[in-house]
Design a protein around this nucleic acid. Structure first.
Length: 540
RNA sequence: GCCCCCGUAGCUUAACGGAUAGAGCGUCGGUCUUCGGAACCGAAAGUUGGGGGUCCGAUUCCCUCCGGGGGCGCCA
């Protein structure tokens, strides 16, 4: 690819001047006036220079350009603005890249940065105490897409759903069902909602069980009958459902206690076992094992079980464990990081916090709460707008941004959702190729150097940027950029479509070249939609 | 009180510390003899919440104030 070559040549020029090149950034110019690619290296170098004979960025840029003997792909290069170097690529060189995309096909955009490395992504991990909510849908779209991207970059990815299938909330679930049947007294904190009543009738012959036991049955049932089907509808894939109960059964709790005590990071006080999180910056130490006095019984906290779970996973040799959590867990996120640091896995944990999804109806916020039974389920959303819109919608926002969701509006506006704009482009591409396919034989090979129209080269430049986006996302985890990438791709394509007739273009070598470009665009768009888990329809 | 995220056009939002802050929806005005009008072209619309600071350069980093959301359990 041209950009790679350009980067190399630039690096050579910079180094021959005696500068430390570091990592040179060559990016697509934000404006056609600034050429095809732009480099801010001179600005960077000016900053690095310490005092003394300080040179201005403009001088450095000129200096670099002089060393840059004009390679054959370059039309011209110039210094602009405060010290940018703008590169104008010969259009026929740009267009040659279409061939490279076509050769790579389904593999276009892949890289091998993660080759031989195992990485784990944990996401959703909603308690099995009710149906999945919109927030879980967001986590699902984010996590699944990130896993796809990492896998595209060569990593061996494991997708994990941690199932909190034991503990307080499970007992509460059992009690909620018992209370719904009048077996025990109702309490404020019990789960509400229709599904509780349905569970009660489904499990009518099990209501003599202890709440915790019943809760286990209910949790298993909800996981299988509610959660997994919703996950499937979202086209989200998991490699493993990691059961919290199994942490106990396998004796992992004791191992953690031993390890933490051996490092003098756990101690007993007031009958409880504590983790010295204050040593890592926490405002106070945290309980690992509850006390008789405090809690009425001695049992591991969720925190302790989760440490055991993390440890178990990390010992499998993942270079990183990415965990996507709701922002309401932000202080917990710190805590688990400290715990893993304590156990020798510093920097192996990456936590992505996503802000809440709030629901609005008729201008009023509806508080979503599983307890109160006032939530909108992921299934309801999928009924309304379908998987593609749901996934694209959740992916559009940066995880840092809170989503205010208006269900009525979503329904009304779903037909003008950006996802259709993007999918329509794909359908158009497919249509052109289908027509070309049955109307004529391939009599002449395409001459890509004929693709010189601005709308053609702009489209090509955008296609060529796809592998970069994949690589960047592998580092930054900012999967929402794929939505804007595909929207822009659709945009470039529609403009090309308006400006350049494909079928019947003269000479035939041009028609073939344009068909090649359409095909390359289709490959790129399909590949990026695949990463997002959004379908790329042949027709709509 | 402490901690985290956010504040950008009427609405929803984007922008490795870079050039003229980019889109979608909505509004207004255009474009149909060939490949799908779910499209394209154009216009109006921004003091990037306020104020300081660092920098050649700040939507981005730092401080402060204001506003919104979330979290501060021997719950999970």
């Amino acid at each position: 690819m041209v950009k790679k070559q350009l980067k190399q040549d630039l690096k050579k020029a910079v180094e021959s001047l005696g500068y430390q090149s570091g990592d040179i950034v060559v990016s697509i110019s934000p404006n056609v006036l600034f050429g095809d690619y732009t480099a801010n290296i001179a600005l960077q170098l000016a900053k690095q220079k310490d005092g003394g004979g300080k040179q201005s960025p403009l001088e450095i840029a000129k200096e670099i350009l002089q060393k840059f003997d004009h390679p054959d792909y370059l039309e011209k290069a110039e210094v602009a603005g405060p010290g940018f170097i703008n590169f104008f690529i010969k259009p026929e060189i740009t267009s040659q890249q279409v061939k490279e995309i076509l050769e790579e096909g389904e593999n276009f955009g892949k890289n091998e940065n993660g080759k031989g490395k195992k990485i784990q992504v944990e996401f959703i991990s909603a308690n099995p105490t009710g149906p999945l909510t919109l927030a879980n849908g967001r986590g699902g779209a984010l996590g699944d897409t990130l896993a796809n991207v990492l896998s595209f970059s060569g990593y061996e990815v494991e997708r994990e759903y941690y199932v909190n299938d034991t503990g307080n909330q499970i007992r509460l679930l059992g009690e909620s069902v018992l209370a719904a049947e009048g077996k025990i007294e109702k309490k404020e904190e019990y789960y509400q909602g229709e599904y509780i009543k349905e569970l009660a009738s489904e499990f009518s012959d099990k209501l003599n069980l202890e709440p915790q036991q019943l809760g286990h049955l209910l949790a298993d049932y909800l996981l299988e009958k509610e959660i997994k089907p919703a996950i499937n509808r979202m086209d989200v894939h998991f490699d493993q459902f990691y059961s919290e109960r199994s942490v106990y059964h396998r004796g992992l709790i004791d191992q953690v206690k031993i390890q933490l005590k051996a490092r003098s990071l756990a101690y007993e006080k007031d009958g409880a076992l504590w983790f010295k999180s204050s040593q890592f910056g926490d405002e106070k130490d945290r309980v690992l094992l509850t006390s008789e006095e405090g809690r009425g019984k001695t049992e591991p906290t969720y925190f302790l079980a989760d440490i055991a779970h993390h440890l178990d996973d990390l010992e499998k040799g993942y270079i990183k464990r990415i965990n996507i959590l709701g922002a309401d867990h932000h202080d917990y996120a710190k805590r688990i990081e400290w715990a893993m640091e304590a156990l020798g896995f510093k920097d192996k944990i990456e936590i992505i916090l996503m802000q809440m999804v709030r629901l609005f109806k008729e201008g009023q916020e509806v508080r979503m709460s599983k307890r109160a039974g006032t939530f909108v389920t992921l299934d309801e959303l999928l009924d309304l707008v379908g998987k593609d819109v749901a996934r694209f919608f959740f992916l559009m926002y940066s995880p840092d941004s809170q989503i205010d969701f208006n269900l009525d509006l979503a329904r009304k506006q779903s037909h003008k959702n950006p996802v259709f704009y993007v999918q329509y482009a794909h359908a158009r591409m497919s249509n052109i190729l289908a027509k070309a396919g049955d109307s004529r034989e391939k009599e002449e090979p395409g001459d890509y150097s004929l693709l010189k129209q601005p709308s053609e080269t702009a489209l090509i430049s955008h296609l060529v940027a796809f592998p970069d986006l994949v690589q960047e996302t592998t580092q930054s985890y900012q999967v929402h950029k794929f939505t804007s990438y595909t929207t822009a791709l659709a945009d470039f394509f529609h403009k090309f479509y308006e400006n350049c007739q494909v079928l019947g273009a003269q000479p035939p070598r041009l028609e073939q070249a344009r068909l090649g470009l359409v095909k390359a665009a289709k490959i790129t768009l399909a590949n990026s939609l695949n990463l997002m888990g959004v379908s790329a329809p042949e027709r709509m």
